[in-house]
C-alpha cells in the first residue's frame, strides 16, 4: 500500500495540474461531508427582509429572493450533487464494466445483440432520454440517479468491451485457460482489474458530466425540488433576477458547477497514471 501512495505522490509531483485537481476533488468531498457544520447560515430558513442582498461580509455570496444565504446553500448543495453523481456513476460503471467485459470476452451473438441495443440507446438524445425517464418514474432523487446511470451505461459497455476485446487473446488469458480457470474467473479476476486504469479516466470524466446532468434535470424542474439546495435549481431560480442585476444568484452556483466539473475532468489523466502498475517502475 505504501508503494501505491509513494507512486501517487510521485505522479502528483510531476503533474501539478493533477495535484491541483486532486486537491480540489478532496476539498469538494470534505465540503460535502461537513457542509451542515460549515455553513454560516441556515440554508433553508427564509429571511424575507434580507432578500436579494449583494455579497457582503455577512453574506459572502449574497442572499436570494427569500433572503437565504447563497453561500450556505452552495455548501450544502455540494453533498446532494456529489451524492447523485457518484452513485449514478458507480452504478453505470459496475454494470457497464461487467456487461461490456462479458461481451468483449464471449463475442458472438451476445456481443452483437448487446452492441445493437447500445447503438440504439446512443442514437437517442441522452438528456431527453433522462428527462423522459424521470418524468415517467416520478420526480424523485433516486430516479435522477437511475436515469443518469442509465444514460451513461452505453459508454461503459462500449469502453469495457473494447478494452477486453484487445486483451482476450493475449498470452496471459490463454495461460489462465490452460491453468484451468473458468471463463467467469477470467473475466472477473483477470480482465476486469486490467481494464480498471483505463476506466478510471472514464469514471472521472463521467463524474463531471453526471453532475451537469443532474443539475440540468433540476434546472428544468425535474428531480430535486425546492427548497432543497441544489446547484441546478439555484441557477434556475436565480435566472429570473439576472436581468435586474442580481448576478450573484446565478454566478456562484454556476461557478461551483464549473469548478467541480473541471476538477473531475483534470483528475482523469492523472488517475490513469496512478492506477496503472506498469507506470510504477
Amino acid at each position: 500500500m505504501s508503494a501505491t501512495l509513494k507512486h501517487a505522490a510521485w505522479v502528483l509531483r510531476g503533474n501539478p495540474v493533477t495535484a491541483l485537481a486532486a486537491t480540489g476533488a478532496t476539498l469538494l468531498v470534505l465540503i460535502a461531508i461537513f457542509a451542515p457544520w460549515l455553513a454560516p447560515h441556515d440554508p433553508i430558513a427564509s429571511n424575507v427582509p434580507m432578500a436579494l442582498q449583494p455579497p457582503s461580509a455577512t453574506y459572502w455570496a449574497g442572499t436570494d429572493q427569500l433572503g437565504r444565504d447563497v453561500f450556505s446553500r452552495l455548501l450544502v448543495a455540494t453533498r446532494l450533487d456529489l451524492a447523485i453523481a457518484i452513485s449514478a456513476v458507480s452504478i453505470s460503471f459496475a454494470a457497464g464494466a461487467v456487461i461490456g467485459s462479458f461481451c468483449g470476452y464471449v463475442g458472438g451473438w451476445l456481443d452483437k445483440s448487446v452492441g445493437r441495443v447500445v447503438d440504439v440507446l446512443m442514437a437517442f438524445p441522452l438528456f431527453v432520454l433522462a428527462m423522459a425517464m424521470v418524468a415517467a418514474l416520478g420526480n424523485r432523487v433516486e430516479n435522477i440517479v437511475i436515469a443518469t446511470a442509465f444514460i451513461n451505461l452505453p459508454f461503459y459497455i462500449r469502453f469495457a468491451r473494447a478494452e477486453v476485446n484487445v486483451r482476450r487473446n493475449l498470452g496471459w488469458v490463454e495461460a489462465a485457460r490452460s491453468g484451468g480457470e473458468s471463463h467467469l474467473t477470467i473475466v472477473l479476476r483477470y480482465l476486469l482489474p486490467n481494464i480498471l486504469p483505463a476506466m478510471a479516466v472514464q469514471i472521472s470524466l463521467n463524474l463531471g458530466w453526471a453532475i451537469l446532468n443532474a443539475a440540468g434535470l433540476s434546472f428544468i424542474g425535474l428531480g430535486v425540488q425546492p427548497p432543497t439546495p441544489e446547484w441546478g435549481i439555484m441557477v434556475a431560480e436565480g435566472a429570473r433576477f439576472i436581468t435586474a442585476g442580481q448576478w450573484w444568484l446565478v454566478a456562484y452556483p454556476g461557478l461551483a458547477l464549473m469548478l467541480t466539473v473541471l476538477c473531475f475532468n483534470l483528475l482523469g489523466d492523472g488517475l490513469r497514471d496512478i492506477l496503472d502498475p506498469r507506470m510504477r517502475t
Partner: peptide, 27 residues
Amino acid sequence: ARDFHASRFRREIQLVFQDPHESLNPR
C-alpha cells in the same frame, strides 16, 4: 476447447508461451 478447463486432462497438457512478457498477467 471452451469447456476443456474443467477436464481432468487439463493439468496433463501445459503450455509455455512465446512472449514471456505478454503471457503474464500484469496485475
